[in-house]
Computed example of a mutant assay.
Amino acid sequence: MNQRGSLLTQPLQPPSAGRVLLYLGLFVLGLAVGVAGSLLQGAWFPGGLLLALAGEAGLCLGGGLATRGRGGSIAPAAGWLIAVILLTASRPEGDFLFGAGGGSYLFLLGGMAVAVICATLGQGWQPGGRDVRLGK
């Protein structure tokens, strides 16, 4: 049996400074991909839409692989979502970035779906060592 105890009984350790910087960097990259995708999806429809969603998927999956956890997928997805939500708001002058076309809605809903899929596919915590299988 595992001598360390259950995951629920272990005390939580604060993340290291490097890990916090990695998550912050992924968040900022998510912001950048959200802004770039917002501009790109309207410029070259439908290729720009597919490229923008592929960029977000690559960043979220890459973040999950880099951190070996779901947090690496969630950090850029949160940055993407914040950037896109801020860009959908119209300004007092009447200017806006997103039109009311189907491409904009596909970008918004497709991007949210990509973020959820990538966070779901992210690697969770897996125990290691000889005691991984029960009964051995």
Results as ranks from 00 to 15, higher is better:
residue 44 W to Y: 15
residue 78 A to L: 15
residue 64 G to H: 08
residue 73 S to A: 15
residue 32 A to H: 03
residue 53 L to T: 01
residue 67 T to G: 10
residue 60 C to E: 11
residue 53 L to I: 03
residue 69 G to C: 10
residue 55 G to I: 01
residue 50 L to P: 00
residue 65 L to V: 14
residue 52 A to M: 09
residue 33 V to F: 10
residue 49 L to K: 02
residue 62 G to V: 08
residue 66 A to M: 13
residue 64 G to S: 12
residue 32 A to I: 15
residue 53 L to V: 04
residue 51 L to T: 12
residue 35 V to P: 00
residue 42 G to L: 12
residue 83 A to P: 06
residue 34 G to Y: 04
residue 57 A to H: 05
residue 48 G to E: 08
residue 73 S to F: 02
residue 76 P to S: 06
residue 34 G to T: 03
residue 45 F to R: 05
residue 68 R to S: 12
residue 35 V to W: 12
residue 74 I to H: 01
residue 72 G to Y: 02
residue 76 P to Q: 08
residue 33 V to T: 13
residue 57 A to D: 01
residue 81 L to G: 12
residue 64 G to M: 08
residue 51 L to P: 00
residue 66 A to E: 07
residue 54 A to I: 10
residue 73 S to L: 04
residue 62 G to N: 07
residue 81 L to I: 13
residue 67 T to N: 12
residue 40 L to P: 02
residue 67 T to D: 15
residue 65 L to F: 13
residue 37 G to D: 07
residue 80 W to T: 09
residue 76 P to F: 03
residue 38 S to N: 03
residue 49 L to A: 03
residue 59 L to M: 08
residue 36 A to K: 00
residue 77 A to S: 14
residue 51 L to C: 09
residue 78 A to T: 15
residue 35 V to I: 15
residue 40 L to D: 09
residue 78 A to Y: 03
residue 81 L to F: 14
residue 49 L to C: 02
residue 72 G to H: 05
residue 37 G to N: 11
residue 78 A to S: 13
residue 46 P to M: 10
residue 59 L to E: 06
residue 38 S to M: 01
residue 55 G to N: 08
residue 81 L to T: 15
residue 37 G to M: 09
residue 72 G to A: 06
